[in-house]
Design a protein around this nucleic acid. Structure first.
Lengths: 232, 232
DNA sequence: ACGTATTTGTTCGTATGTATC
DNA sequence: GGATACATACGAACAAATACG
């Protein structure tokens, strides 16, 4: 077994057994190198593998820290972001990053059952739970069904409230697609997570009571902080 | 911007624009180092980041190659592994890695509605689609409901057929949990993927017609090769 | 506001090991 | 066995981000 892997396993064991607590700082690289009698590069290789697995997070100029455990999301036809977290006694907030009016590309048009090029509203938000970023979400809405959505959303504060003001009192999740990948630099920065750690990509189509698509959303969530459950 | 990141972005662009095709081999490290006028380490750093994002896959002694695009799995109450892929005109096989009789731990007992310590059958399989490994799956079955499962499975060849012989003609997916993480060394090796690339962790509980849990499965699937969709 | 110490990040050089063809 | 290509490890230096007096 290689040196870096032994160091990796040793550190993982110390974290698993609680000798290094949640959130605790690891000894600095130089110190670990001395302790294991190897070059600093070799320690870095081990730590890099731990960061890659989401066990620790590395921050330039600060140090290396032990990470914490995920929250559970029961996906449901009718779940609402704020509501769900309120039930679990967590404080959820949504921060608007970008808003725009766009023309639907093929994927958007397909999801919203529009003609490509149709007018859509676009919202990009960062969702935080208990002060920690959880997801970056991009959402598209058909312009015809939700006129002036951006201003209404800004005034209303939540998407549910905005849609209600626009006469869509009830809407439901129709389909949800899930995949995973590594984040872009921007996503990682917004989620305050290392680029080596995966994001869950959750694509959702919501429909109104009549079954018309109202919203197409693509959320990128810190995988280490989230687990989804679907009942059938 | 650092040198390795520029090289990373340049190579990604060449792959995205098709100048480096799916499955194509990248120039060897020494050649890339010469081309970009940097040390071989710097090229390795760039390639390592591409591998981490699942854009390329690196194989010792062979070379570095561009990866391909994912398959789509419509998750359904009643989907069957072989059936589903057959519909999509793909060849799916399942290879038995391990089989054992085990005592249920807390998580298994909870999922299968058994007392902790109850007798269970355990199957670990590698699922391949068109010759490429897709998932490593661990499955637990309640011993009382499926007596002698292991021999029956080996004789029958598929899980559906084995359960049918044991009198469970029809079973359904009850719940599915999804999360993502980086793979262990063993998982990565079985899936023929780099350790830096995420796996989707898919936990499933299947129940028989009477609603009794029959199977608790934990699949780890190469995230780059799979996308899940749930309809509601 | 500034400078300094600390800590991680990048890059070079070099040598040797291991897997594949 | 030999050639090729990636993997591991050591040493040195400097850059960049952060923390702190």
């Amino acid at each position: 077994m290689t040196a870096w892997r032994q160091i990796h396993d040793t550190l993982e064991r110390e974290i698993q057994t609680g000798r290094l607590a949640d959130g605790a700082q690891l000894p600095v690289e130089a110190e670990l190198a001395a302790r294991f009698g190897v070059n600093r590069h070799t320690v870095r290789r081990a730590i890099s593998a731990l960061a890659t697995r989401g066990i620790v997070s590395v921050e330039q100029g600060r140090g290396t820290f032990v990470r914490q455990s995920p929250i559970h999301w029961h996906v449901d036809k009718r779940m609402r972001f704020t509501e769900m977290h309120a039930q679990a006694n967590r404080k959820a907030t949504r921060r608007l990053l970008r808003a725009a009016e766009v023309a639907a590309d093929a994927a958007i048009a397909d999801a919203l059952e529009l003609k490509p090029g149709s007018h859509c509203y676009y919202l990009e938000t960062l969702e935080e739970v208990d002060g920690t970023p959880l997801s970056v979400a991009s959402r598209f809405f058909p312009g015809r069904l939700v006129p002036n959505l951006i201003d209404v959303y800004i005034a209303a504060g939540t998407i549910t409230a905005a849609l209600e003001r626009l006469g869509i009192a009830d809407y439901q999740r129709r389909s949800t697609a899930v995949s995973a990948r590594l984040p872009s630099a921007e996503e990682a920065a917004l989620l305050l997570q290392p680029r080596e750690q995966p994001v869950l990509v959750i694509e959702t189509v919501n429909v109104d009571k009549a079954g018309r698509p109202i919203e197409y959303g693509i959320a990128r969530s810190a995988a280490a902080r989230l687990k989804l459950t679907f009942d059938m």
